[in-house]
């Protein structure tokens, strides 16, 4: 296990380093130089020159990368050009919305997909399977903004159970949670549908395996064999999808954030792009990339926990 863990940690560190270099150099690829790009075509040459110095663009590239990386390691992501505030604080504030939202949506997706996928696999080829998987098909096809608007109409406008949008902040935890429920459902349903389908097909495959037949020969009922033997083996492909979904939910919630007026990370990046605030874009992308790499690392660890063949050489 220790060997597995140390090899995963090493690869985590390397990935982060490579990612930081990539994110840093992408900004260098914008036409002209970042300063004139950020200020637009009508800017005064002196203003551009001032911004260049402020951004350190007069320094050589490797030096700038080293300085940037050093600052990041100390928690300094730079200052937003538009808002003149430290970016680290901005991102932290947005993460307070985006992270709980993503986690809620993911938990909900798993909570729905696990029983639904198992149910469909256990009744493979029968009416229940067809019904559930048909519904999942629709769930995947539905655009989530449409689902979001529907939820708002039913639960906020008509029934008035939950707020239609906005975020009161975590100083009022109950209200904050309530305001995240509808967006989390809108995000979770299509993901749950994908997850349920993946789980079903993985389960159907593992249930055809010899060891499930062995389990039946031992006296386990079909349901017991499925839960005790097939399910854990089927979780391996499901974990892969789960990792990808979390990364998507963290930053891909941009449309949902707009529908519900949530001050999330997706909206911040979108605004920063329209305002050509490259420093914010760069830092936010780095944070997202780091999150994706961290989740991949966790998924790798989960593989190791599930599959003994990975733990021991």
């Amino acid at each position: 296990m220790l060997r597995y863990l140390s090899s995963r940690i090493l690869s985590l560190g390397l990935s982060l380093l490579v990612a930081s270099a990539l994110v840093f150099s992408v900004v260098e690829l914008v036409p002209g130089d970042p300063a004139s790009f950020m200020l637009g075509t009508g800017a005064q040459p002196e203003t551009v020159e001032a911004l260049r110095r402020q951004m350190g663009l007069d320094q050589p590239l490797p030096l700038r990368y080293a300085a940037w990386l050093g600052a990041i390691l100390q928690g300094d992501l730079g200052t937003s050009f538009t808002y003149k505030t430290p970016i680290a604080g901005m991102i932290l504030e947005r993460l307070q919305v985006s992270l709980p939202l993503a986690l809620m949506a993911l938990a909900l997706a798993v909570a729905i997909a696990l029983p639904v996928g198992t149910f469909a696999a256990a009744r493979r080829g029968k009416a229940g399977d067809g019904l559930v998987m048909g519904a999942a098909h629709v769930g995947i096809a539905l655009p989530n903004f449409w689902l979001a608007m529907l939820l708002v109409l039913v639960f906020a406008v008509r029934l008035r159970w939950l707020p239609a949008g906005g975020f009161p902040g975590w100083s009022a935890p109950a209200a904050a949670l309530r305001s995240l429920i509808l967006p989390a459902i809108a995000l979770a349903l299509p993901q749950a549908a994908i997850l349920a389908r993946v789980l079903r097909s993985a389960l159907v495959e593992t249930m055809g395996q010899d060891y499930v037949r062995t389990a039946r020969a031992k006296g386990l009922s079909a349901g017991q064999a499925l839960r005790r033997h097939a399910l854990r083996n089927a979780l391996i492909p499901v974990l892969t999808i789960l990792g990808m979904q979390f990364s998507f939910l963290l930053a891909g919630a941009i449309i949902i954030e707009n529908v519900f007026y949530l001050p999330g990370l997706g909206r911040m990046i979108f605004q920063a792009i329209t305002q050509r605030d490259l420093i914010v874009v760069q830092s936010a992308v780095l944070v997202l990339v780091a999150a994706v790499i961290a989740v991949t690392f966790l998924v790798d660890l989960a593989y190791g926990a599930v599959d003994p063949r990975l733990r021991r050489p």
Partner: peptide, 21 residues
């Protein structure tokens, strides 16, 4: 209740007959 207690069974392919996890 009968399978596994009154009637035991083994199969051809031992490489895949056991749960790998």
């Amino acid at each position: 209740r009968i399978r596994g207690s009154r009637i035991g069974m083994i199969f051809q392919e031992p490489m895949t007959a056991l749960n790998p996890l």
